[in-house]
Design a protein around this nucleic acid. Structure first.
Lengths: 185, 185
DNA sequence: GATTCGATCGGAGGGATAGTTA
DNA sequence: TCTAACTATCCCTCCGATCGAA
């Protein structure tokens, strides 16, 4: 183990990127710097279906905790949205996916709720490409990066913003926070 | 100033990213993490012509140092190529630009040599859009990110690879290294 | 004739808007 | 019927393989 000196602001930033209690500085930095995690081959296939929701007895607790998490982590999704990535996206579709990716990262366990968000006759989200493709014509499904979920992409920017707002609210964000998230697009 | 503990390999990696003697860990990390540098409004317009080369008395020393740098930093361009960025690029043009950006970052002072690389009748590189646009038809010039240089973009992937190889060699890389660089595309 | 180079044009992706449905 | 919400067609831009030119 080596020790390095960094300024306060940078320290706070790194700390804010923690993904689980007790995550080490090395782990956080490796993730942020997109280095391979030491040793592991790290070939994570994330194409499998999302983990089934807990048996309903645990359900209420789960939800309460989710809200708590959003409260405690206030603004954390905002840190998870890699501004760099966002900026390099050439179009709204790219930004849309980056934002959803960030939301997924922070809300992996509750992300299933997005599947309840849909249009009049087509689905908006699903955990497989086909469900979306079959629910309409030319829906242009795209996988949300590093996640098992897919989104429809054939819609105007206005609708994409609406979708983001709905997702945000479904995940427990306030109207104000949802507004901020939508504005990234 | 805060102090954090990181593992040896990560420490080495960060150290390898030093851009000038005595650069602080904070400075390096901020650059790698693409954070705004503290305080400064940092509105860097990089559209101006590249900084003039030093008065010739210092020139030889400068060049000697540049070569040394490539030697000492062997593989540093490779670290400068943000794998993450590369991966998120949807097409060869995007990757092409990311790679050139990395090369520019490491060889800012010698980058002018690329302007000598050209096709039969069109220019490949220049420090302004127009020179390229006028040297051929539909050359699709694009600015190399964070640099004052532009490249032609209307060519097949094979030619883009050739261009990368020529750039690498012109900047002093070995055939083997050039090969590696070209393979990023 | 062989090879290198250029840029046209087919193809894919993006997303505004015309059109449809409730 | 009129309007609001939603869909997906279709135009535009970007990409880059292919084929004609040098």
């Amino acid at each position: 183990m080596k020790s390095i000196e960094i300024d306060e602001e940078l320290y706070q930033y790194i700390a804010s990127q923690t993904q689980y209690i007790g995550e080490s500085a090395s782990s956080i930095l490796r993730r942020l710097l997109a280095m391979e995690s030491q040793g592991s081959t790290s070939e994570q296939t994330v194409t499998s279906a999302p983990v089934k929701a807990e048996a309903s007895e645990a359900k209420l607790d789960k939800e309460a905790k989710a809200v708590k998490l959003v409260e405690a982590d206030k603004g954390s999704v905002f840190d998870h949205i890699n501004k760099e990535d966002l900026a390099t996206q050439r179009g709204a579709v790219g930004r849309f996916l980056v934002i959803l990716q960030a939301l997924y990262r922070v809300h992996q366990n509750d992300f299933d709720v997005v599947c309840g968000i849909r249009g009049r006759d087509r689905l908006y989200f699903a955990n497989n490409e086909n469900a979306l493709a079959e629910s309409g014509s030319s829906t242009k499904p795209r996988q949300i990066p590093d996640s098992p979920y897919w989104v429809i992409t054939n819609s105007n920017t206005t609708r994409k913003k609406m979708m983001l707002t709905e997702v945000s609210l479904a995940l427990g964000y306030s109207e104000e926070q949802a507004e901020k998230i939508r504005e990234f697009l």
